[in-house]
C-alpha cells in the first residue's frame, strides 16, 4: 500500500482536537507551538509560557513587537483578554504543581515506558536544557508530537531511549505523522493509524511492539 504521512501542521491539528475548552496548556518551543493555531471552534485554551505569562495570543505584526513581551522561545507575543504575568518561581509552580492540564513537546525518542529524550543527542557541543525537564513533570497530560521516524528513517518510538533522558516514564500520548499511540502499563497501545498504512508497515517503522486493546480508529485529518 502507499500512504502519505501527515504534515507537521496536520499532526498539530490532531493534537489540538484533544485539548478541551478551558484547558491550561504549555506548548514546547518550535513545532509544538503550531498546535495553538488549530484550536477547535468554540473552545478556548489558555496558553502558558515558562518565562511568566498566561493567556498569550498570536505574534504581533512585524514592526510592532515589544521585546519585553516574549515567550519562552524569545519570540514576541501579544496578550489576550484575561492574561496575567508572574515570576519564574510561580511559573514553574504551575508546571510542577499539577496545575497545567496539558504539556505538548517534541521528541528525539520516546520509549514504551514513557521515557522521553528531547534535549540533546550526545555529549558534544554546548548543552542547553531550558524548561523541558520541568515540563514533563506535573502537567496532567504530557503528550509528544513528532514525525514517526527520524530524518534517516529510524524509529523514534523505541523500547529504550539511547539519547540522554529528559524525563522518566512521563509521556502518556504520542501523536505522530502516521499514528496516535498511548503509553499504558509500559507498552505502546495503538489508538489510531492512517487508513492507508498496514499494521505490518507501521510496526516495521516502530522500534517496540505496538499493542492493541480494541479497534484501531482511522487517523483522519483535513488537508491544511
Amino acid at each position: 500500500m502507499t500512504y502519505t504521512k501527515l504534515t507537521n501542521a496536520q499532526i498539530a491539528w490532531r493534537a489540538a482536537q484533544d485539548i478541551e475548552d478551558g484547558a491550561y496548556v504549555n506548548l514546547g518551543i518550535g513545532f509544538p507551538e503550531m498546535v495553538a493555531k488549530f484550536q477547535p471552534e468554540g473552545r478556548e485554551a489558555v496558553f502558558h509560557t515558562e518565562n511568566g505569562v498566561l493567556g498569550f495570543g498570536q505574534a504581533p505584526a512585524e514592526g510592532s513587537e515589544d521585546w519585553d513581551l516574549i515567550n519562552a522561545g524569545k519570540k514576541a507575543i501579544t496578550l489576550k483578554p484575561g492574561a496575567s504575568f508572574f515570576h519564574h518561581a510561580d511559573s514553574f509552580a504551575m508546571v510542577r504543581g499539577g496545575h497545567l492540564d496539558v504539556a505538548i513537546l517534541g521528541a528525539y525518542q520516546i520509549a514504551q515506558n514513557g521515557d522521553l529524550a528531547n534535549w540533546r543527542v550526545g555529549s558534544k557541543g554546548v548543552p542547553a536544557v531550558g524548561g523541558a525537564m520541568d515540563l514533563v513533570h506535573g502537567a496532567k497530560r504530557v503528550a509528544v508530537i513528532t514525525d514517526h521516524v527520524t530524518k534517516d528513517g529510524k524509529p523514534k518510538l523505541v523500547e529504550t531511549c539511547t539519547f540522554p533522558l529528559t524525563g522518566v516514564g512521563c509521556v502518556t500520548r504520542v501523536y505522530t505523522s502516521l499514528a496516535v499511540v498511548d503509553i499504558e502499563g509500559g507498552k505502546f497501545v495503538l489508538r489510531e493509524k492512517l487508513s492507508d498504512i498496514s499494521m505490518d508497515e507501521l510496526q516495521a517503522l516502530t522500534g517496540a511492539t505496538l499493542h492493541t486493546d480494541g479497534p484501531v480508529a482511522d487517523l483522519s485529518v483535513p488537508e491544511l
Binding site: A89, F92, V126, P127, G130, G131, D134
Partner: peptide
C-alpha cells in the same frame, strides 16, 4: 566554552528559579 575557558553549571529552568 568550547575552548574550556569558561565553566558551565547547567540547571533546569524551573529548578534554577526554585
Amino acid at each position: 566554552f568550547l575552548a574550556d575557558e569558561i565553566e558551565l553549571e547547567l540547571v533546569p529552568q524551573g529548578t534554577l528559579a526554585e
